[in-house]
Design a protein around this nucleic acid. Structure first.
Lengths: 255, 255
DNA sequence: CGCTAGGTTGAATACGCTCAAAGATCGTGG
DNA sequence: CCACGATCTTTGAGCGTATTCAACCTAGCG
């Protein structure tokens, strides 16, 4: 059990446990007790992955969906010249939609980055849920749209931003996504990515990644200690990165 | 009426007209006459856009979906420093899913590139269709997955490929997507993108775009005359770009 | 205590950008 | 029908950001 997971270390099956996925939906829209207990049905079967374990394995994951409860994963492509591009990250509260991946041929893989806890469920569980609770279906559409927005942001980030801006932008995105599921404390979160992985995400060399992080530090915008990163000036970072929180926008916030 | 549209110039309402969208689905899986006539219902209401006209206008497009019948469009983001990033293109046979865009806040816009013909339909038309024809629903899931794959490819392309590779890769993607809807002839297709737009797609300057295209030409890999582009050596291009046709893979090809 | 993975730093190089200016193409209006 | 303007393309030259190569440092783990 690694240090970075302590804040989330709550007994797994406790009825008081709020699953990150439910927390995320609750952030988007107020949920009734009935809806929450319905959503708990998606969490009945859990599983565990080790650090750096392959998750996308088209052979044996047919018809299984995963919800990330703890830990990070990522989707990536390895190129023949030895370089790697990380497409996106899966954080607690995110759905990893394996069947959709199987539907069409994929050029990418999914792997855990840290040890992970996930919930597994079958697609028809979701179908049944939506049939009874249309509101949950619209919420699902919403997070699905947000996911696509994240991909779009990744394109813009890599395509038209400087290394400095890219880095600020990604760190902000991670911050906002983690905040929704309660994994930030005082603008600080645990960031289990190596500089190599960050570089592979932002399309740059790990040497330059290192230098860019240094510049952000010397500009007093971020602070890093072991796996904890602190965003020291959210406004300034957002200004530099031209960051708009597209990845997580609530439809109607009726809290 | 522009020259590049002549090959597609068929009377609009002719019963023999095969809509690109239907052609695309038919490429993925053999369609029955019944299914084809069902899909025609999506094409009952058509509309037209001018060249460089804004399509995504969150105010007035609620609940409308578009199918591209003719012409090209793209989704893009303008940054405050004056640069632009094109996210993806919409070609004949593609669906532009406007409601999904409205569901969550977007940082991007959609605009036509050429004059366009589109079909408009309401989301519940699609719902009704799927209720009666599950096979069509699974086909829709498939093209939806393919769309996401294209976005993923765009990330990899921009993130980890050289200008030369990127360009080859994009030209191949456009070729394969157009081929499915019958808009290629002998490895040639009409490519209405300016070098500036191509550059904004691939995250490079238009000057370097120009030089890269020249290199591809002098390497005898492509030929360009006005708006026609020919891919002279598909295999070599694919090898250079490490291209795998992820954007369009059939589930079961039972022809 | 030594190995391995990750982080840091320097120096040389290269890929792609910016600035600038000159052609080409096309639509439009005189 | 030609001339003009606007947009797009082409080419040159200098510059800058990011890469590569290489070495060394650090921390964690067996």
């Amino acid at each position: 059990m690694h240090a970075q997971f302590k804040p989330d270390h709550i007994p797994k099956q406790s009825p008081k446990h709020v699953w990150p996925f439910i927390k995320k939906l609750g952030f988007l829209q107020q949920l009734s007790q009935e809806e929450i207990s319905q959503l708990r049905k998606l969490h009945e079967k859990t599983a565990v992955f080790e650090k750096y374990q392959e998750i996308l394995n088209p052979r044996d994951t047919q018809g299984q969906w995963l919800i990330v409860n703890r830990g990070w994963a990522c989707r990536y492509t390895d190129l023949s010249n030895g370089s790697r591009q990380v497409i996106n990250y899966y954080l607690p509260g995110d759905i990893i939609n394996l069947p959709a991946l199987n539907v069409s041929k994929t050029n990418y893989a999914i792997s855990s980055i840290t040890p992970m806890h996930v919930s597994k469920f079958k697609p028809d569980t979701l179908q049944n849920l939506f049939a009874l609770h249309p509101k949950l279906e619209s919420l699902y559409d919403l997070i699905h749209g947000n996911e696509e927005n994240l991909l779009v942001e990744q394109v813009v980030r890599i395509g038209r931003r400087s290394a400095y801006e890219r880095t600020a932008h990604l760190l902000l995105e991670l911050y906002h996504r983690l905040k929704v599921v309660g994994q930030t404390v005082d603008n600080t979160y645990s960031m289990p990515l190596t500089q190599g992985l960050l570089a592979d995400t932002l399309g740059m060399s790990f040497v330059h990644m290192n230098r860019t992080l240094h510049k952000l530090r010397s500009d007093n915008l971020i602070a890093i200690q072991s796996e904890k990163i602190s965003l020291l000036d959210l406004d300034k970072l957002a200004e530099i990165a031209e960051y708009q929180n597209a990845g997580f926008v609530a439809l109607t916030k009726e809290s």
